[in-house]
Design a protein around this nucleic acid. Structure first.
Lengths: 209, 209, 209, 209
DNA sequence: GATGAATGAGCATTCATTCAT
DNA sequence: TATGAATGAATGCTCATTCAT
């Protein structure tokens, strides 16, 4: 292993440390209450170092969401490429969505807030492109399956983009809503079961008859 | 009209001025970027005056959401009390939701962010109670209709609360998602049509077979 | 009683109400934490009315101290005019001082802070003169007795003004110090006994031999 | 000198800069009128930097007093440990007190106001402990000498704590009172002579006969 | 005279970001 | 590269005071 390679690896490790620390702090405190110093302390680094890896606080925050969005997108695309019927693909989507929620609920919620939230002012164009590109990819994959369902006469005759919006929006909304109820009522484990119900409803609702 | 009455009316007008100014500023800038001074300027008042009508920034922001939540709740309850069948009630819900979205999209979105967002620290107990009470009322009314549907053998046999969560979450999520897409893509008028599609899917999905 | 007279009396009553309310609020909260609105509420008046009777917050506060200073001065002067020996006069001073502390400790302490404290910026010249005049009067009376003691060969040969400063300063300091200890240690009744001890020491210390 | 050592020294210097600036500003303006920005400007630092060294305005203010209280306490304790008679110790106390007044009158006055003034709300427990501990130490040393005097039959038979209160209170009171007179009358140098007189009186007053 | 709604200057404190070492 | 001390702009909120009624 060359010295250059080792440095690259080291750099990646640092970046990962920061991301993990940020995930932890943002999850507990939310974007505004979290401070860069806390994150630095958690990562056992100095505040200045964070800025060697991320342009600013907003970009650090967003990069968490982009990571999970990439993961989600990959999973969805894998489902699309499987040689199974549309209905099974939809059920796989459900599993993927539930799996991702289980993987890191707080960052997923970040993502949804990000997609629907206050304008991002300090985000670099590069970051913005990443976000949009991955978002479009995931959405595109979903649209593809829905189109397939429509073409095969399984799904109702609506604009596939609109149906994909319904699917994605419902997913995001149910996650946001049920997750916040979870906090209030202190029931710990009904998010997944409600998500399952949600997909049961949605999938059935998409079908003809 | 007595002098007292006139003063009350004047006070209400002021309050309304502030709320309108706040609505405008919060819509454009979001909660964090908006400043009390901006809102005061917009309302043609001094910053201090805002605090005669609202305890703090957070409470001013929340009161916008509470207003629309109350309106939404009232509309939903009216539907529940109508002497029509469950399926028609569900369709009326759709109309109410779409109507409320049309009435004031930005505040409705505030509300959803509020319900799913970072903890509210500076909210008075009174405000918190208002929020919870109205939220519970709207949700309760929806649950009631869903129960009715289950009892009559029209809807699938799932826990009615879970189904109501699905309905509410999907509505909120589709609004958030589609509204944000609207901004990005600059398509202006497909929110309503996507909401219509969403309800079509959901309502059909709730039904047995 | 003429109408003018009645008005004057009414005015005095108002003034008294405000002073009593201010005394109460300042005692509990201290100068800075007390607000004019609180005082107005306590006096069952509106904030604006306070300004008809007192130029500003500082002047209201000071007028409390001046009142007690006037009372103290009167008492001291009465002692001076009594036809008793110097030593008895000193003991009467002690009684007066203890009496005034008992009468309204918090305002007396205000007075001492006022005399030794931060510069008074908003005080009208008139108020300043009142304060200085009464202060000088009380001090003058004490000096007079001390001079008498020196002349009669009872007290030590020091500058009478310096001795009066010692007496006054010690009184004020012991009150401030012991009163604050009272709060901390929650002993309720040893201020008077410590004051008695203080005067015993001072009076003996003033004597020759 | 190691790099760490140099940094520590640098840090101490900064702290000292801030304290000096604060001393100056607080002396001129008093606690409430002084602003953190003024102090920062005086120290040729930015406002934020002050908060790296002191938790808040109140703690900065108090730390001035604590410094001088520590110094005073040390001096007093040294006197106590000397191998001299009680009467000489009392005279040494006098010298210490006069010395400390000469060292930094304005901060000494801060200290007395602090000990007798409005409750301190923003003070950290640590700071409060420092204050109380040093206060108790100084007072304890004084009590010890007074006890010794009583035991040896030199001082009057009163509770030693009460006598110490008289001594301390008189000292503080005379300083406050004479110092404020100095300002008013613009006599510059009679504080020390009055303090000397005060101690002469007090010491003689403490003695039997 | 009395009111009390409105004012708006004023300030402590925070924290993302920088840069000399 | 990494540091972390220093920065300083930014802002919510208070409250003494005013003045139209």
């Amino acid at each position: 292993m060359g010295i250059h390679e080792r440095k690259q690896r080291e750099k990646q490790r640092r970046r990962r440390d920061i991301i993990n620390a940020a995930r932890k702090i943002f999850s507990v405190k939310g974007f505004n209450s979290a401070t860069m110093e806390e994150i630095a302390t958690e990562a056992e680094l100095s505040p200045g170092t964070l800025y060697l890896y991320f342009k600013n606080k907003e970009e650090l925050h967003t990069s968490l969401s982009i990571d999970i969005l990439k993961y989600l997108t990959t999973q969805i695309q894998e489902v699309v490429n499987l040689d199974i019927c549309v209905e099974e693909k939809m059920e796989r989507f459900r599993d993927v969505f539930i799996d991702v929620y289980g993987y890191d609920a707080s960052i997923l919620i970040n993502l949804f807030h990000l997609q629907s939230g206050e304008t991002l002012h300090n985000l670099s164009d590069e970051m913005m492109q990443h976000l949009k590109k991955n978002s479009a990819r995931a959405h595109g994959a979903i649209i593809q399956v829905i189109k397939e369902g429509i073409d095969k006469g399984i799904f109702i005759d609506e604009h596939p983009v609109a149906l994909a919006d319904v699917l994605w929006g419902s997913y995001a909304g149910v996650v946001l809503w049920v997750d916040s109820k979870k906090k209030l009522d202190d029931h710990k484990d009904f998010v997944k079961s409600t998500l399952t119900t949600a997909f049961k409803v949605i999938i059935q609702g998409l079908k003809k008859n």
